[in-house]
Computed example of a mutant assay.
Amino acid sequence: MQRKFTRALLIGSVLALVGGCSSMQNSLPFSKSHADYQAPSVTQPSLPNEIGKLLTEASISQIFQVTPSPWGDQVELRLDAPYFAATGQTCREFSVLRTSGVVSRHLACEHAAGRWLEVRLITETASTSAGN
């Protein structure tokens, strides 16, 4: 009798533990897949076609003179290597050198064939990205 009670208690404990863990799965911040990723709004303006073409086709560390651009006239872009983000999108970091000598880092991801949107670098806060 004691043995049956212990066995029933053990099985009940295991079931409660498994049930509790499975109910927590969707509440954990890291439990979402990349399919749950919310892409930037469709209304967000994409980067100009000329810049999108550079991001798609240019090789690493090439420097391009771009005018006009979202960062001002006559800026230089230096492109890093493209990579596949966890969202499944192709992304690319790049530097922008303004005529004033100020260099800023940027990140863009391809959201449709040839349509690139600038996104906030994960190392930036909203206040530091506003100054770029």
Rank of each mutant, 00 (worst) to 15 (best):
L10I: 11
Y83E: 08
F84H: 08
G12N: 01
Q62T: 14
E110P: 02
A39M: 13
V14I: 15
S41I: 03
S23D: 05
Q65I: 06
D36K: 05
T56M: 11
L17N: 03
F64W: 13
I63D: 06
T125P: 00
T125R: 08
T56S: 15
L107R: 10
S22M: 11
L28S: 05
D73N: 15
A113H: 09
L10C: 07
R105P: 00
P29A: 03
T99S: 11
T125G: 12
L79F: 02
S41W: 05
F94L: 04
P45C: 04
Q74N: 15
A113Y: 08
P40Q: 09
D73P: 04
A86D: 14
M1D: 11
Q25D: 06
R92T: 04
E124L: 11
P48W: 02
R78C: 06
S22V: 11
F64H: 15
G19K: 07
A113K: 10
P45D: 04
R7S: 06
E110I: 03
L17S: 05
A39P: 10
V42Y: 06
P82W: 11
E76V: 00
T128F: 08
R115H: 06
C21F: 13
T56Q: 13
T128P: 01
Y83M: 05
R3S: 09
G131Q: 11
G114Q: 05
P48Q: 05
V119M: 08
G114R: 00
F64M: 09
R78M: 14
S100A: 08
L28N: 04
P40L: 08
L17R: 01
I60H: 04
E118R: 03
T123L: 07
T43L: 12
G20M: 07
